[in-house]
Amino acid sequence: MTTTGSKHAWKTRRRWLRLWPYAGAAVIVLWCLGPFYWMVVTAFRDVGHTFDATPWPSHPTLDNFRAAFDTSGGDHFGRALLNSMVIACATTALALLIGGPAAYALVRLPMRAKPKVLAAILCASMFPGVAILTPMFQLFTDIKWLGTYQALIVPNISFALPLAIWILTSFFAAMPWELEKAALADGATPAQAFRKILLPLAAPGLFTTGIIVFFAAWDEYLLSSLLSNGNPDVAPVTVAIANFAGSQPHQVPYTAIMAAGAVVTLPLVAAVLVFQRRIVTGLTAGAFK
């Protein structure tokens, strides 16, 4: 028997229960987007009002973006953007071209050492970058590679290749391979089956893996901060932002750095919004399945 009082309590409880996911979601949105929002707001704020605490855009200006790309203080942000593009694209291409066939073999072809190879690749993906830094720095000094593109691309293979293989194996394992057999049975040549059936099926997995590897390469800082050796012609954007000095001595150029950060981040955030579902699949697949 329920009294009217407890019925009423149950109703308010139910209403609250329906609402709490929204309250939780609001907290998550605030926590995840708040700092990012603050970066963008500051990027558009006049440098004289750097520490203005107004929560919405105020004193709007584009000067900070001009300051971010200004080279008179010894910063080369624009060049660094190009360098990061070259380095991250080359790293991603290498990882997919070399890791793709390996992942295919690990999923589809008979191999006795398969568990050992998979374990080795997993170990490699967790390998600490700092452990290869000293020998790489020493070697690249000897062969005069310091401050070159290849010195920034080759070491990236140490994390990009294991990551690519690991995510691709899980994508390939989930592919409907019977279709290949069916195509062959219907008289298609292996090359045709590959081109017309397998490649279109594998494309989303390759694309997703490419995004995640690209993000990882774009994020890299430890190796490139030393191996670029202060050469602005090859240093990536992470190094340029970390060392950003601005044109005014003895003054931290916060607003210009936030502008540079916004330039680097906005395309990535746009990519995340567009490819959200794929990236989540790739990240979680890379972690276990």
């Binding site: 987007l33 700092p35 990012f36 603050w38 500051t42 993000f215 800082y221 992470t238 190094v239 990519a271």
Partner: peptide, 22 residues
Amino acid sequence: LRAVVLVPWAIPTAVTAKLWFF
């Protein structure tokens, strides 16, 4: 919401560090 939580993940660590520094 899932896209939103990916935003901190997508921001390069160097930018994250400067952002929190600010």
